[in-house]
Design a protein around this nucleic acid. Structure first.
Lengths: 258, 258
DNA sequence: TCTATTGGTTCGTAATACGCACATAGTCAA
DNA sequence: TTGACTATGTGCGTATTACGAACCAATAGA
């Protein structure tokens, strides 16, 4: 009657618990037990055990019936950031170019069909402030960052991804036809940069260029700027700046093993 | 023969797995299975199951025999940062004051007897660049940030903490007598700021002021500057700047519920 | 008010993770 | 090379563990 050919090397309890920790995202900063159970697809009792374990370990805190993340989760990320010398190698480069170009620069990677912000330069009051930080997720198909990342995928992976991801509609100008989006991605790949115009935020241009070498895990940097009369012209100097920034990052060898 | 009065609400497998994830810190960016087992105090087989589960979940990657964190752990931190609007409320304030004062400003909290960096403004090439980022741990008893944090603890907690933590010796000037350190902490509490001189890095001053209200979970901001002839004088204007910064953070209500 | 949902608890049982043990393969010194 | 040591992978019997249904109490919503 053994019907579960489970991998004895994987701890399913642990995996279930992890998925509890992972349901806390930007949109839902605090959740009830019932919510967690629903989102993880676990039984309420199971989700409760997972959540209580996380509370005991200090990763979650409980205020009444709401559960939310504690600062301790930052320590986990800190391990990654320090291991890759982000503070020493990446952040200074981003800051330097951001200062010179007077824009916020974002470094991103793909993670689970989403764009994950690895690091972001910090310029006072940029024109577009969505409040993204390292660890934030940003839209995939309607941002220059996302499209440039997708352009770095192997073709078959790109196709399956495009077929899989939802295509929301952030603005009137958001492309909704997967074919059109695919073309923009191909364009980005061939020309080596990606420009989006008001597809995520009205009146805002997004510009992104690759950092990683072709064929490797895609990593990109990008920036936003307010749309003027001529998007192409507006972004010309910024494009060159971003390309220099990407070159510096490549040279710093900081993003090679991600 | 039942001898383990275990809490049925806690999943011990999950807790063990979490401790595997937590052993990856700044000093040891990649570990072997045996190392993990040793550090977590778990059986090798147990540690292996935990690690393999983390690999499958995408939080760890395996290169040969070495295991290391993947960028995905950043997403966990992102949940916390976004929930508390760090990108929108905290980072801009830090950046603004950092720019005005021309120093890097660090926002910290206590976590497990360590100083955890919550956020950091990044000024181009500050004098002291340890490469700290959000999620980094910095020394507790020999930095102004750590002492100011300790000064915010209830007295009995402070005592037990001081008795518990190791006291390393970073420089010739590092205080090593717990009593002396305790006095410095008391001084910090009474005067409302903390100054350290070359106790962590030779020739570098550290200055920190509290952000949190007295009695609440301590949160502090601080900065570093090179030591001149007179530490007190050097830091006078910076102290006022940090106090304004702390006031702004208080007003932004961003750090109330940590 | 009534009703639906939630949080908390109990408990029998199936499933699971534990950890010893063994086999193998590197690693370093002598 | 040899030999001692350490690391990794895996099998497996068994005790532990986590599962989830069922139930009650409390809360929220209408």
């Amino acid at each position: 009657m053994t019907k579960t050919p489970q991998d004895r090397n994987i701890s399913s309890s642990f995996a279930k618990g992890l998925s509890v920790l992972a349901v806390f995202d930007a949109e839902t900063p605090s959740l009830t037990l019932a919510e967690i159970a629903r989102r993880t697809g676990q039984d309420r009792a199971t989700a409760r055990r997972g959540a209580l374990t996380l509370v005991q370990a200090g990763y979650l805190r409980q205020d009444g019936r709401m559960l939310s993340l504690t600062p301790r989760v930052l320590a986990l990320a800190g391990g990654f950031l320090q291991a890759n010398q982000f503070g020493r190698r990446v952040q200074p480069v981003l800051n330097q170019h951001a200062r010179a170009l007077d824009v916020g620069i974002t470094l991103c990677i793909l993670d689970q069909d989403r764009v994950l912000v690895l690091a972001q330069s910090t310029v006072d009051q940029g024109p577009v402030t969505h409040g993204f930080t390292a660890g934030s997720h940003i839209p995939l198909v309607h941002t220059s960052l996302g499209r440039m990342l997708l352009a770095g995928l192997p073709l078959e992976e790109l196709e399956s991804t495009l077929a899989r991801v939802p295509i929301p509609r952030h603005t009137e100008l958001s492309l909704t036809d997967p074919m059109e989006i695919g073309e923009q991605i191909n364009l980005a790949r061939s020309q080596g940069w990606s420009l989006t115009d008001s597809e995520f935020e009205p009146g805002i241009l997004g510009l992104a260029v690759p950092v990683s070498a072709p064929g490797r895990t895609p990593i990109v940097v990008g920036a936003s700027l307010p749309r003027g009369q001529s998007p192409q012209k507006d972004s010309e100097s910024l494009l060159r700046g971003l390309q220099v920034c990407a070159g510096d990052l490549r040279q710093s060898r900081a993003v090679e093993s991600l």
